[in-house]
Amino acid sequence: MTDVSIVSFAQAPNVRATHGTTNGVEMLVPILREALDGAGLAKQDIGFWCSGSSDYLAGRAFSFIAAVDAIGAFPPIHESHVEADAAWALYEAWVKIRTGEVDTALVYGFGKSSAGVLRRVLAMQLDPYSVAPLWPDAVSVAGLQARLGLDQGLWTEQDMAEVAARSRGANPNAQVHERVTAEELLDRPYLADPLRRHDCPPVTDGAAVVVLATAERARELTPNPARIIGMAHRVESAQLGARELTASPSTAAAAAAVGTDGATLAELHAPFTHQEILLRRALRLGDEVTVNPSGGPLCGNPMFAAGLARIGEAATRVPPGERAIAHATSGPLLQQNLVCVLEGE
């Protein structure tokens, strides 16, 4: 099957709240242009478009349709949409190129998380019969998972704070940036025992765009494409109680399907500190692997774009000849995970 590469990547500034419209599509307009310019392509050159977003972020049916206007989708485009993080849209686009039907694709994700009360909106993802009627919010549910690992001795609050300290110092351009030690962070109060604010992602409005092309075409378009070596994703049961919550079997299975050996860099879509620790183990990442040089979702978590941004960040950061792992997640407590392995060219 056809090899596919990432040609360009652009992302909107990660901010706590944009002045933009409820669905946040105007964050897309400048970065669509930036990503297309980065690939030296015009919108008419794109063979397939695919996006990821959620109606419930904006509280309206079909909120993604507004994005079709932002694209300037006329003449009509060959397009699809996933109601999930746009990393899954990238997966769909990757498959589309591999069918041989198209040789370029543009993938985007966007969301204005600040329009509603995000942690409460996300309770709507839980089992609609026996869990969601209680409105357990995303932070509380993550706290249950974190404590399972704390009690089992799989990680400590110190470990979690170290993840936060490293992430917060990683990227001066991130939404959250501070030079801080784990000890200083541990002196701060609990947000929801056992989680402190630094264990949780910020609320972020944002958007991201990635342009893909066949590996052959990619070399014509950019001097440094990142080739997709493989990509796989898996979902776990919806029964929280029945899941293995202190491991991530779906991440491990996706990684095994792709083969992740030899990576030197990883961008992990771990919205909570303990989830980074858990994912590093599922992916069997050693200390030699640089994790989340972008700061990761702990420093900017644009819903429905953050997973795609991990792939874009990994693609832009992986040096020629080296391999990077990009990971994306969807659903409560890492229910669904995607692993993408990239090689710099």
Partner: peptide
């Protein structure tokens, strides 16, 4: 109880 998380400021609709 096999795990717990504090909810110091309950949100609308919670028990």
């Amino acid at each position: 109880v096999t795990s717990w998380c504090a909810q110091p400021e309950p949100l609308a609709g919670q028990p």
